[in-house]
Write a protein that binds this DNA or RNA. Structure first.
Length: 602
DNA sequence: GCCGTTTTCGGCCCGACTGTTTTCAGTCG
């Protein structure tokens, strides 16, 4: 009862604000608000550890699949059970969910104009310097800042000089592009080019890309290039001549940073072979994973930095590890965590229980259960897609073209679908057991919750993926209930791209993922991890939640062309970040085994 | 602000580079 009243009240508050949709606050929205609060506090010069506490709370909020808003409404005290959330942040979550805003944030925003925070996006301009510019010169916008630089007024401030003005002017132009995160798949292309180029430098003994790229994060903010060499000058000179380098940001003895033409920053570190493992560990991160690692080391009277692990005794430092990553972890009694797991989520607890999962690999994948053909919006014919899948070593595929509601994409009505399925029967006859083509469909879940094709048609399919394409702006209750309905439908096998998000382009639609996963578990249905680099939907956090509930994940390319089949590896990477093993992923199994899993429920 | 088999108070990871400084604060990862 309380929940209903509160939610209705919240909906009224939110709908009274133009442009806002009816919604229970998502975790990412709550985290955004708290991050803004942290920005403003930082700007005010608040205690650095207090800021860090807020940052770590917002990270925890983004990293859980539990709906913070729901917990705040129903069991607010349970919020502090989440690591990183204490009494104060818990109270703020409750206030935010109940009132739709935070009193403290409103007060701060009255003192500091929001436009001032834009200055923090300029590389090299942090909270202290930005605050000095705002407080001493009264500058509140980037345009005023540009004018002040050009009029040489910034250099009059203590701690600023002509170079600072140049840095700011350059930074204003970059603020838009810099800091934008690119898809992992795009970063990967850049990495391959850099690898090829750096292979031509004889001074390079060993080379590895670290950072969020190595952790397989869905988006990458910059590249961290680690090189073993005895001659850092030669390596840096060579690196600086990479044709796409637009600007050198910094260059010292061991570290150099450049910006490429598209705005991507690449940091180069040159180390000796003795330090390679420590440096690789250190620069792979994440920051939060490293903080935990160093705290553990400290308790053992050890110190970890990018040069090695050192034992502290009688004011002397003795090297105990550094050459390989394995040495660094093993000296602390820890396993070598796969980079994808180094996010300070559960990996240290898993290690303590000796339960680190053996993550799924691309070679474990046996089939692809979501792809399109020229029958709807694909570029490849049925035969071409099947041929390409065979050449990629798969054992089976499902052809899942769109259903009739997608008329713009020439979606299939029952007659055309049945025609396609009889073609598939013929093709299977020709294949004679060497390969299996499944009769599938990507069937729309209509706005009213009905399936887009009649039951008697769906009943004849081997495999049905249900998806939401229309009515994505419906309320959380409506969308959730549509998906729950599909999961309860006897002929639906899996939910495709379950949140509809397009990374950097479109937010996920409002959906109660906890309820969805619970229903999938009850009905024995599968959830898709769509491998397209812009989707990667489910995300890593939801994959981990599905695993907890025993809901199998099916990694699918949703290929619209032959080349699209190669996207499988991006999905596998995301699955690894979710901690999935081969047995957690349905399409590492044979079709007979998958059929058994979904067939029992019909 | 968060956290706790050394702690409910006193810690909180660590180093490189830059610009503005005559020894260091700010920023970044």
């Amino acid at each position: 009862m309380i929940r209903r009243v509160t939610r209705r009240w919240l909906e009224e508050v939110l709908t009274s604000v133009p442009g806002k949709r009816i919604a229970v606050l998502s975790n990412s929205r709550i985290a955004d608000v708290l991050d803004q609060l942290a920005d403003l506090l930082e700007f005010q010069g608040a205690n650095a550890f207090r800021i860090r506490a807020y940052r770590s709370a917002t990270r925890a909020i983004r990293n859980t699949s539990t709906s913070i808003a729901q917990v705040a409404q129903q069991h607010p005290k349970n919020l502090t059970h989440i690591d990183g959330i204490g009494k104060s942040v818990a109270e703020k979550c409750v206030e935010l969910v109940q009132r739709g805003s935070l009193d403290q944030l409103d007060q701060l925003l009255r003192q500091i104009p929001k436009s001032v925070l834009a200055m923090l996006r300029i590389p090299g301009l942090g909270p202290k310097k930005a605050a000095a510019i705002y407080q001493q010169l009264g500058i509140t916008t980037l345009e005023q800042l540009r004018e002040a630089c050009e009029a040489e007024r910034i250099r009059t401030l203590k701690g600023f000089g002509p170079k600072s003005e140049q840095m700011i002017l350059k930074g204003i132009g970059l603020a838009e592009r810099a800091g934008k995160r690119i898809y992992w798949a795009v970063a990967d292309q850049q990495v391959q080019q850099l690898r090829d180029y750096m292979a031509g430098c004889h001074a390079v003994q060993q080379l590895e890309f670290a950072g969020s790229y190595r952790r397989g994060k869905e988006t990458v903010g910059d590249l961290d290039l680690l090189v073993v060499s005895e001659d850092s000058t030669r390596v840096m000179d060579y690196f600086g001549r990479f044709p796409d380098v637009a600007d050198t940001i910094a260059r010292g003895e061991t570290k150099m940073s450049v910006r490429l033409g598209d705005g991507l920053q690449v940091d180069l570190r040159v180390v000796t072979s003795r330090s390679f493992g420590a440096a690789l560990q250190y620069f792979t991160g994440s920051k939060e994973h490293n903080v935990i690692l160093r705290s553990l080391a400290k308790k053992e009277n050890l110190k970890i930095n990018e040069y090695g692990v050192f034992r502290l005794e009688d004011q002397t430092e003795q090297v105990v590890a550094g050459q390989t990553e394995a040495d660094v972890y093993n000296v602390l009694g820890l396993p070598v965590f796969p980079p994808e797991l180094r996010e300070a989520r559960q990996e240290f607890q898993w290690a303590a229980r000796n339960e680190l999962p053996e993550l799924v690999t691309a070679s474990d994948i046996r089939g692809d259960l979501h792809m399109h053909t020229t029958a709807t919006d694909g570029n490849g014919t049925l035969e071409e897609m099947v041929d390409a899948a065979r050449k990629r070593g798969l054992d089976f595929v499902a052809i899942t073209d769109h259903s009739q509601r997608l008329s713009m994409l020439d979606g299939l009505d029952p007659k055309r679908l049945l025609d396609q399925w009889s073609q598939i029967d013929q093709l299977n006859d020709q294949l004679d057991g060497d390969f299996l083509v499944l009769k599938g469909i990507e069937c729309d879940i209509l706005e009213n919750g009905d399936m887009d094709l009649p039951d008697e048609v769906l009943a004849q399919a081997d495999w049905v993926v249900a998806s939401v394409h229309f009515g994505q702006r419906q309320s959380r209750e409506q969308i959730t209930s549509r998906i729950l309905g599909a999961l309860a439908h006897p002929f639906v096998s899996a939910i495709a791209h379950p949140t509809g998000r397009l990374i950097n382009r479109r937010d996920a639609y409002e959906v109660d993922m906890e309820a969805v996963l619970q229903a999938a578990s009850e009905h024995g249905k599968l959830m898709e991890l769509n491998a397209h680099p812009a989707r990667l939907d489910l995300n890593d956090v939801h994959c981990a939640a599905a695993k907890e509930l025993g809901v199998p994940i099916v990694i699918s390319t949703d290929a619209h062309s032959v080349a699209g089949l190669d996207m499988m590896r991006y999905g596998v990477l995301q699955a690894r970040r979710g901690g999935l093993t081969a047995s957690d992923v349905a399409n590492t199994h044979t079709w007979a085994e998958i059929q058994q899993a979904i067939g029992g429920k019909r």
